[in-house]
């Protein structure tokens, strides 16, 4: 029986690109079905459509590079979300938009509920707080979200989009559960503050000094 003496073994340099090609095909087969989900998350985290597309491409390129080390391919969707979230945080790590520590106590005490109650901008409403919120156009809410520093926006958008627990969020973002808890609380407080400022700008309030 012929032992394959005429089969010239491919040199190493030829085999490696073929393996890489196979890895890429496997990665594409597993990861591309989640493209719409990854893109939606990117849109929610990025300011513009172009930023979102750049983020998606970067996420997939990073994902391909790390794919051979992925232990559980069935969990590829949260894994891609994690890569995307960390890219957003890393991009802004050099120029973080942190809320000054001195302002945090004031922020923690901020209450849109109390302000709306005291101001009573819709005296004929039988559901004041719901009707107050309903006045805001979608763009105002999205601007308020984009005004959040990334350290607050990323966990909040992940919570809303992926429905992760605090422990899962801590694992995804690589920080303690306590940090996640305080950032998610403050993220909502900053949103409340932004919406109140927006209500003033739009003339939703009755008194000028509200």
């Amino acid at each position: 029986m012929q032992n394959g003496s005429d089969a010239v073994p491919a040199p190493l340099g030829v085999e490696l690109p073929l393996e890489r090609d196979e890895v890429r095909r496997r990665f594409e087969a597993l990861a591309l079905p989640h493209l719409a989900h990854v893109h939606r998350l990117a849109v929610r985290l990025a300011g513009t459509a172009q930023d979102a597309e750049d983020l998606v491409q970067e996420t997939y390129i990073k994902g391909l590079a790390a794919f051979p080390g992925l232990r559980n391919p069935e969990r590829i969707r949260p894994w891609l979300s994690r890569i995307l979230s960390r890219l957003v945080l890393d991009r802004h790590r050099m120029s973080p938009r942190e809320v000054a520590v001195g302002a945090l106590t004031e922020l923690d005490r901020f209450s849109l509920y109390d302000l709306v109650w005291d101001e009573d901008p819709l005296p004929y409403s039988d559901n004041l707080h719901r009707d107050f919120l309903a006045q805001f156009p979608d763009d105002d809410v999205r601007s308020a979200l984009l005004a959040l520093p990334e350290a607050y926006r990323v966990p909040l958008v992940l919570l809303y989009t992926e429905d992760l627990s605090y422990h899962e969020l801590a694992g995804t973002l690589g920080c303690p559960v306590g940090t996640i808890m305080s950032r998610l609380h403050r993220a909502r407080k900053i949103l409340e503050r932004e919406l109140w400022a927006c209500a003033k700008r739009r003339g939703f309030l009755r008194s000028d000094d509200a």
């Binding site: 849109v43 809410v141 979200l145 989009t161």
Partner: peptide, 8 residues
């Protein structure tokens, strides 16, 4: 807020 997130 959740209901007003962009669908993209």
């Amino acid at each position: 807020v959740r209901s007003r997130l962009p669908e993209g």
